[in-house]
Amino acid sequence: MDTLLFIVFAIVAVACALNLILQSHPISSALSLIGVMCSLAVLYLLLGAEFIAMAQMIVYGGAVMVLFVFVIMLMNAGAEKRSGKSWFAQFAGPPLLVLFAAVLAFLILRAVPKLRTVEFGTWVGGTAEHIGQMLFTEYLLPFEVISILILIAIMGAVVLASKEID
């Protein structure tokens, strides 16, 4: 069952990601990205990370991507134009990308061979309780720092977005 789920959602994720880079309209890309995120949330659940899965939906799906969709709608961003610039990226990019993917896959399969197999339910470590305990004991300082970061980001966004440009 969980194998089937993995296969289905992995295919969905890859398909959505491909769609993201193939579509020319930003809003199509945004929706593809939401698809990737939702399928990743399912994969997280399979990996026993139920809190992270829900956070993925709430934070990424519900907050970040809504912002994206909003901005796209606000700016009425149209489809992309062709551009003759960035010759280096045009020519050196594809071989580099292929090489990069190959190296990563090779390293994963060769260098880390002794991995567990994933069986749903054998380990549910990521409950809200565990995460909360870790956040408020071992990771307290990063947690507080990141809350300050969020605060600053809010202020920065407000300042940037509210600035009138003449």
Partner: peptide, 24 residues
């Protein structure tokens, strides 16, 4: 059952697709 390395390979594929999106 699925070995964990599949998840990692999926992660790598998504990452490379992200890079490709960034570049193109």
């Amino acid at each position: 059952p699925v070995p964990l390395s599949w998840y990692l390979v999926l992660s790598a594929i998504l990452f490379v697709l992200g890079v490709a999106g960034f570049l193109y």
